[in-house]
Amino acid sequence: MPSPHLLPDDADARRSVEPVICYPTDTLPNADLPLYLAARAGAAKVGEVVVAPRDAASIEVPAGHFLRVSSVEGAQVGDLNLFNAADLTERFYSGKTRALHGTHVSTGDQLWSNFPTLRPMATVVDDTLNWYGIDEFGGSVHDVIGTRCDPYTGQVLAGKDYHHCCHSNLTRAVAEARNLPLWEAEAQVHDVLNVFMCTGFTRDTGQYFMKASPVRPGDYLEMFAEIDLLAVLSACPGGDCSAEHTSDAAACYPLLMEVFKPTNNALDGWSSPPVNAYDRSHGT
């Protein structure tokens, strides 16, 4: 325990300083939601994959298509990785997405890629759980604060090897999707979008918490692919994450990924966002 220190005379004044938003988003290029929604209205399904409980699967999502992640049988959360389909080194950057849009994402928010590209990879266009908001505990849905359940932390906390946590599931799915050895695929797996997961931070200790997801069969999160994507999803071994997230004890259910293609000319004038314009020749 840290040693206690005397309360300074101006403690209340220091605590009462007004916060400042780190990254004001007024100048961010706005996603053209009306265009995307109009294109979605006439889109046809061109692919799907069922993600088995305690497992992961991948699907290709061409730029200008839509990816829908759905609950189909029971309350289930999923860990989503996104990659540039042609270059796995460009991948979803949960930390910068969190800094720009907040701890949880919903309709209108964009999912950003890592440096040096730093551009929108996808835009959330529909979310059947956007009614949830922020609850009395500070919890909300679709977080970009958690990492992913993994075997290394499990070994540290419990001294056990567990092979169906999301990190391991994602590793195997990436390896299969790109015919990579497991060690090489593991290096590409990254912090996730926790689809349907309800999380927050405790007010007293600041610890990351989870609670039973409000997701029900038929709920979905849908996004527009701003670039060609490889989407990799793990159906978390914690099920709805009401009690634990690395276990064979929780009730787990499959998740469904579907891809929809707009009709011809539905996206006239649209193009994928360019890579970040920062001039790297001067060094970072």
Rank of each mutant, 00 (worst) to 15 (best):
M121N: 09
N114P: 05
L267S: 05
L193A: 03
P254L: 08
F137W: 10
R14D: 00
V141Y: 06
T263Q: 15
R203T: 12
S71T: 11
A63D: 00
A86T: 11
D9Q: 12
N114H: 06
R98F: 06
K261E: 13
D127G: 02
A13Q: 14
D150H: 11
V125S: 04
W112G: 06
L255G: 01
T153R: 14
T153V: 14
S58L: 04
E244L: 08
N81F: 04
T89R: 14
V50F: 03
Y36N: 01
D191R: 07
Y36I: 09
D228K: 02
L157G: 00
V144S: 01
L82I: 10
V46Y: 02
L33D: 03
D79S: 08
P116T: 14
R14K: 07
A52N: 05
Q155R: 14
P19H: 08
F115M: 01
W183M: 14
A52D: 07
H142N: 15
T205Y: 05
P120T: 09
P217L: 06
H190L: 10
R216S: 09
H101W: 15
G102H: 04
L100D: 00
M197I: 00
E226C: 11
S168W: 12
E176V: 12
A38K: 14
N130G: 00
D79F: 06
A75T: 13
